[in-house]
Design a protein around this nucleic acid. Sequence first.
DNA 1: TTGAAAGCGCTAACAG
DNA 2: CTGTTAGCGCTTTCAA
Lengths: 343, 343
Amino acid sequence: MFGSYTIKDIAKALGLSTSTVSRALNGSYEIGAETKKLVLEYAEKVNYRPNPIALSLKEQKSHSIGVVVCEVANNYFSQAINGIESIAYNSGYHVIITQTHESAAREATNVQHLLSRHVDGLLVSVSASTTDITPYQYLHDKGFPIVFFDRVAQAVNTHKITANNIKGAFDLTEHLIANGFTRIAHITSSRNLLISSERLEGYKEALQKYNLPVQPEYIKHCENGGMIQDEVEMALQELMTLPERPQALISTSDRITTTCIPIIKRMGFKIPDDVAFAGFTNSDVSESFDPPLTVLRQPAFQMGQMATELLIKTIESKRPIYEYQNELVDTELIVRKSSLKLA
Amino acid sequence: MFGSYTIKDIAKALGLSTSTVSRALNGSYEIGAETKKLVLEYAEKVNYRPNPIALSLKEQKSHSIGVVVCEVANNYFSQAINGIESIAYNSGYHVIITQTHESAAREATNVQHLLSRHVDGLLVSVSASTTDITPYQYLHDKGFPIVFFDRVAQAVNTHKITANNIKGAFDLTEHLIANGFTRIAHITSSRNLLISSERLEGYKEALQKYNLPVQPEYIKHCENGGMIQDEVEMALQELMTLPERPQALISTSDRITTTCIPIIKRMGFKIPDDVAFAGFTNSDVSESFDPPLTVLRQPAFQMGQMATELLIKTIESKRPIYEYQNELVDTELIVRKSSLKLA
DNA sequence: TTGAAAGCGCTAACAG
DNA sequence: CTGTTAGCGCTTTCAA
């Protein structure tokens, strides 16, 4: 709060009523041209700014949207937040960001917190440990605007923005197959996440297309989404000590992808000579890795923008919405040395 | 806004007045034990949550803090924001983040925007192109709480949290000197930024300590903070075509550091054989770079936390504050292969 | 111990 | 065309 002029101040200074000032400021029709001019000029002079809090109280709208993500310091999410901010800012909304650190409990608290803050809508990407989505279902049923992005709660029938995960993982896997690899392992995030199963599905589809067996021992889940270094290390350990050691690895989670590299090296394997590697990540330095990383990139910024546009449209819609969009956006495969052809 | 119970609802249901309910809820002394119990139980039952907007209007406090940074999708800032969120969240404040994209004009708009949102205080890290700090000075003079972190407006006498930039750059430079390099170039961000001059100073101090000449042609500024790829490329180009080509490079900006690597490689130089490299960055994957990067890391998370603690303390202080803290936090030098000893 | 009423800044229905 | 009034949810005098 900072010593700003109120409508009352203007009214007093100009010898008018607050309603007249309000009307002038809001360009109402029922106002005299001169009065209007007078008020507008004075308001301009004293740099009048309406108090958004008073407006919120009046309108029963906070003009804020709540964001639930696992982590801000994550390539994908920091880019998505960039997109969210860009749209929200221009639409007069501000953004309250909360982090789950992949904890379902924390996520529930965050949603509560955001609700008690009276956010007008929610932009959510569920945590890796989230299984209970009834709070979202409940809110949505009550007509509260929610848009999921990236990590969606499938069962809740609302707007969703996701990357084409199946195709993305398919492309990644197919690329490895095309490069001569047949024993390809798959490291992914929690089984709770739809993105995990979709990416797994894309992987399987590619194997099947080329008549390669889908081997369960080649598939590893990191239930904490890679937040815990040990789980990634364990998964890698198990994979690389298999009798039929995989020739290539794909990782389908941003954090896991970047975490894998040093672990693999520490285990003494050379990429791609001993084991090829490719993964989902939005890191903008994957080119500088040793070796340069083959990555599957999601349009994080655009996804954030799309989700926010949809959410604001929903919030501002006059009539209830019963048709929900399920946007699928394309990913980008960037081939580099880490997935180099088998000699 | 979401169909929640109000004090009025409770009052009506219990046949009390709103003031009584309010008193019960706030644990006032002037209230009957039974009434209090009654209200509290009912409130609990219906999951009553005070409307923060009404409270804000009443208290003339928004319980929100505004953050001004250049970019969320930046290693340092995303980590700092993580720290900011963690403290703000636990203190009942929410955080409104704005990005300048290194534009001074955008920064001014953002501050205006945040002010019109009635944030209770500002956490700012100025943009690379900011020269006019009078708005901050003005606000601060009026008693508005501002804490600068990382990129501070030196002239404004308020709380500041910075890394020990001089020592950090000194350490980085000394390390290179210790490794046998004598011709060390310095690439940094805009001259406007105090962090740039401090880091430059640390560099010079190290050279002087070891009786090495400070050569102006070895010092390059990127006025756009590395937002523009070309400016980094240009700087590198000029340095690497010098008659006496530098043997080592230090970069003192997060974004510039990560940008340099691919450019240097594209120019055909091998790191560290043709030119050694070390730089400020908070990237958590610098270990995976080719070659693994020697970096100077700032405690971004803690800096965000400290800044937020200070800001909230200032906001909530009963009496005006005239003593401002200037916290200097230590950096961490992590030595890796990119700065390897000269053969 | 409790209630009535005013007020935070703003808008809007209702009078005039 | 303009003023009066009430009300959004809450706290806090002031009376009782």
